[in-house]
Amino acid sequence: MKGEKQSDTLSVNVGPMRLRNPTMLASGILGISQDIFERLYNNNIGAIVTKSISVDPMKGYANPTIVPLGNKTYLNAVGLSNPGVFAFSHEIMRNKFVPIVVSLVGSSEKDFPKMISFLDSLNVIGYEINLSCPHVSKMGMEIGDDPEMVSLIIRTIKRHTRKPISVKIGIGSMDVVEISRVAVESGADMITAINTVRAMKIDVQSMIPVLSNVIGGLSGKAIKPIGIRCVYEISKVLNVPVIGCGGVSSWEDVVEYMIAGASAVQIGSILGNSDDTFFNRITSGLKRYLARKGIKNIGEIVGLAHRY
């Protein structure tokens, strides 16, 4: 396998997950097709996080669901559309070589053991629990802002799987460090930070909000400094790997997140403006940077900003 050769400099350990390089597909992007996962992996991505899967299929909201705002910044309210765990488990059943993390979303703690029973025997390296979708009621952020629910869900999941789980947090009404602490104390192996940030776009000519759901989540370049801050604050205090997410569009952004404290970095919206060479450009940029700095493995830069 081509990816093995770069293991010296770019391979990272994210808790118990070992990735050939620190790039991951962010949840919600291109996340429903095994053929697409294989294409991304052959294009040198480190790992895949799927779209958030629920017990039953969800159609999501009517279009417009995704609004490009310019400057590599996007607004979306897709509404967690996904084929449901039964169809999705069939989709990835023949997965042989792609490191897949399945993102899970539910409206109560009872949903998660059901989904895990379909997925746990498949070739899946871990789960990411979406407790921070900013635009679907009773799923996501409403749960993420409730520490008792967060704790109950994580403890329930940990009783049903031995695979590592990451909890994806966002900007809600609770402090990101506090909600991460609740997740870790309940058994989360990792934290993914951050989800999209609640936002809105109005067309001034027609005076109409563009998203069918009116309010959605902001992603892309505009939220990167917020993501960097959250990763820094969480990783400085908590002793679990943090996966950075939000506005990554270049190898420099990957480096910045890792210096802030991320063990791996997710990439999402920007893939809309990229081609099949994207991950090769990221990894070769990272290798050149490490060579210039005389760093043997990229893991050495994780959290260097904690000195400050």
């Binding site: 429903i32 697409i36 995704i66 490009p68 897709v78 559309s81 893939l271 809309g272």
Partner: peptide, 13 residues
């Protein structure tokens, strides 16, 4: 989305 983000329009790879 029309711009390669959502993945809804996939046919095989």
């Amino acid at each position: 989305c029309g711009i390669g983000i959502c993945g809804s329009c996939c046919i095989d790879r």
